[in-house]
Design a protein around this nucleic acid. Structure first.
Ligand SMILES: [Zn+2]
Ligand SMILES: [Zn+2]
Ligand SMILES: [Zn+2]
Ligand SMILES: [Zn+2]
Lengths: 478, 478
DNA sequence: CCTGGTCAGAGGTCAC
DNA sequence: GTGACCTCTGACCAG
């Protein structure tokens, strides 16, 4: 309580830092210095920001007397002022623009549209040269196009070869702005590479551990009762949010969140994911998470890990089963309960409610809706826990989905599980037990179809740099 | 809602001007003329700045043909061109340098470091003589060091005689950088000067207006009742934050703020004021408000003005009283309620709560605590409003605290007030009225003692340039 | 978080 | 070559 008499040097008061790390911004796209965020649509430093802002106040245009191709790079200029004419051109070429900038935080849609506009602007700049007659930035010479023939020629040269963004390689050897998905940021991923990554991630515990860790070493499980018990033990490890909820409760939640969501949509507009190509292109150039998928994936990490770990726990309890296989069928059945195709909402494994369309940036709405409809049909069957558990077991024991050395073994396990399912049904209250079994088996047929579709998609998704970067764990099932 | 596309010229925001003039820069350290700020690390004028900058563009070195010991002082040269060779040497000797130079505004730390660097450079120069082999300024002859032994002597000489006001006379040696409180930034203030300033500030309304403005011209106030009424009218103008609060409420606030404050202290460390000398030294060199006193004083301005104005209003209602006198006693009694010596917190006139130690950078903790303890004792007496008001009246009518022409008058007023106090007590509920009066009078005895202490301190505080700069109004009671 | 405003201190200009 | 006056720059801040 006594005041410390130690002299304290006048330390600047701590800046109020947000709890999370200061979030280092990418460097200024104009000059390369530390940027302070997005200004006028482009990551830029305080200096370039102010420079650009000021450029609008000018009455006289800037003029470069060195041919107009000055290098703008703070480091290489050590201290001296960069050529303002070329600096401004670079700003504009990068898409800096005063239109559409908004005070404060952007909403998703605002942000997206701003970026897209910037994007367009940029493409324009590329061939603005002799075309756009009313590009009248006060700081740019009106006759830029006309006079600086050579300077611009070079530019045109570069730009010509790129046109509307998507062109391939350039003849002249000059740099071009590629807008294709094969971004320089993350060139095409070699499959081998992915596998390695997947293995590495997998080693961290998601993949089945050593065989020895399996529950109880006694493999004498001839009886369906025993098998069922083991399966139910595994089922006990699953913790899908809807597990102990009634349909009413589930629909209630979905309803409520749906209302919230529609309100939000009214205010901020609907979140629509861009095509992945386009996203990656923008991301490469601006480091902007325009449609928020990066955030989605990051946030989904825990979700996914939890689900994947529970998956492993479940599998460990399948008699004779020793390897993981595909996951889509399992996850689909596992999560079949939290769906509402009418309102297009769903509940995630850990209980997050979100619109179907926001669950996956890689999938078309139709596909997602197809999956959801399937789930809804499953839920209409009102699976008992035993049915649920056995079906999950069957999901992971399709021989062709198993990368194991002994597919026959897997097939055998599945056979046993199917028997157990039949056995279970025989003890059930259903009037027509055969019909019930048929219904359940029919699900697998259809599940296999959409599973095949998914598998194709999965491979594509695993190529995506954003996914690799933000949710590498997802690749483990490759 | 639509964005306005009209180009908006950067309309100037109302400048938040500190009421007083912009406080001139120290004079040019090279030539003595008015400086325009720090250039190349040294307070210098526009001419010397440009001269120094240009010196780097030269290919041929300057050459002095008068032996290299020319006096560089604009005044003494009236009009004639200073010798560029010697001028440049002086610039360099003062530490001017392009080293830390950059475009745009300097960060506080950059600025500080540049200034400190200059300090070092300067110190080096003093005994550089034949040592520094790589001083290769283009405008300086390579063999400068060898020959200018004498020149430097001269320079030291010059600086002795001019420097920045602080140094007394040096006998033979080199000049030293003084770190005393009498900073170059604001050399010793002449008392006359302060008085003028005080008067000027005072004229702005803090000091009693014309006599005519006194409330009701009827001076026939023989009766104590009438006097009391007048005093209470004046008391009505006072708006100390604690006025209508109970002790519990006050202590509650103090407690709460104390807790907040201890939390803050844990996070940011305790704010301790530097010795004024040290502060001013740093301030002169870096313009940094290291311990925040500048901010404190600026923020206290409103506080002080309000209190001072209310003081005037109160005084205007003292019968026959026509001039202001000392203030400490008045303010001390006025604010006696918002104190907690245990937690060392207090409440200001307008209700700001702050730790005792942060209220005044000029006073030792012990002194402050002494004052606070006094206040606390006063508050233990639970003054009635009438007692409170009369005591305040008595505070401002000590004849020796009054700079008036007719001290007897003041003394008479005080006598009447004391009578009124006695009269008031006689009508009170106190059992032992005499004892109560004695207690109250005892307070004055002690108040006078600490008031004397304060008066000394006040004079010192009024000398401080930071105070003069930021809260000149404080000087009005001189 | 981003925008616009600010102003100290750089550099440039041109009558002298 | 000089220096009064200008423009430009960019760190910082309020909103
Ligand atoms: Zn930049
Ligand atoms: Zn250029
Ligand atoms: Zn000068
Ligand atoms: Zn000379």
């Amino acid at each position: 309580m006594e005041p410390v008499s130690v002299q304290r040097k006048g330390k600047k008061r701590e800046k109020y830092t947000c709890s999370h790390e200061p979030l280092e911004f990418p460097s200024c796209r104009v000059c390369g210095k530390k940027s302070t965020g997005i200004h006028f649509g482009v990551y830029s430093c305080e200096a370039c920001k102010t420079f650009f802002r000021r450029s609008f106040l000018r009455s006289t245009p800037y003029k470069c007397d060195k041919g107009g191709d000055c290098l703008i790079n703070a480091e290489k200029q050590n201290g001296s002022r960069p050529c303002p004419a070329c600096r401004l051109v670079k700003c504009l070429d990068l898409g800096m623009s005063k239109d559409g900038v908004k005070q404060g935080r952007y909403t998703m849609t605002q942000r997206t549209s701003v970026i897209l506009e910037v994007q367009k602007l940029r493409d324009q700049t590329s061939n603005r040269l002799a075309t756009d007659p009313e590009n009248t930035h006060p700081g740019i010479q009106g006759d830029r196009q006309i006079k600086d023939g050579c300077e611009l020629d070079c530019n045109i040269f570069h730009q010509d070869s790129q046109d509307d963004g998507t062109l391939s390689e350039t003849s002249g050897g000059s740099y071009t702005i590629h807008s294709s998905s094969s971004s320089s940021n993350s060139p095409h991923i070699q499959d081998k590479e992915i596998v390695e990554l997947a293995q590495e991630v997998g080693r961290t515990s998601i993949i089945l551990g050593e065989e020895s860790t399996k529950e109880s070493g006694v493999p004498c499980l001839d009886k369906s009762e025993d098998i069922l018990q083991r399966i139910m033990t595994g089922y006990g490890y699953l913790e899908h949010f809807t597990k102990s909820m009634t349909d009413e409760e589930i629909q209630d939640i979905l309803d409520k969140e749906w209302m919230k969501h529609t309100d939000k949509t009214k205010l901020f507009g609907k979140l629509e994911y861009l095509p992945t190509d386009q996203y990656n292109d923008i991301y490469e150039k601006t480091q902007l998470d325009v449609d928020g998928r990066k955030k989605l994936l990051s946030e989904a990490k825990y979700e996914f890990m939890k689900m994947a770990n529970d998956y492993v726990k479940f599998c460990k309890n399948i008699p004779f089963f020793s390897g993981l296989s595909s996951h889509f069928e399992f996850f689909t059945i596992l999560q079949h309960k939290g769906m509402n195709t009418e309102k297009e909402m769903c509940i995630s494994y850990t209980g997050k409610v979100l619109p179907l369309s926001e669950t996956c940036p890689y999938t078309s709405k139709e596909t997602l809706l197809g999956w959801a409809e399937f789930s809804e049909e499953v839920s209409k069957l009102q699976l008992s826990p035993e049915e649920f558990a056995l079906m999950l077991g069957i999901c992971v024991t399709f021989r062709d989905r198993c990368p194991l050395d002994y597919p026959e073994d897997v097939e055998n396990i599945q056979k046993r599980l199917l028997e157990t399912l039949e056995f279970t049904l025989s003890k059930s209250h259903y009037e027509n037990k055969g019909r019930r079994l048929a219904k359940l088996l029919d699900l697998f047929v259809r599940l296999r179809v959409i599973g095949d579709e998914y598998l194709e998609l999965y491979k594509v998704i695993c190529q995506d740099p954003i996914m690799r970067e933000n949710l590498p764990e997802f690749l483990i099932y490759l």
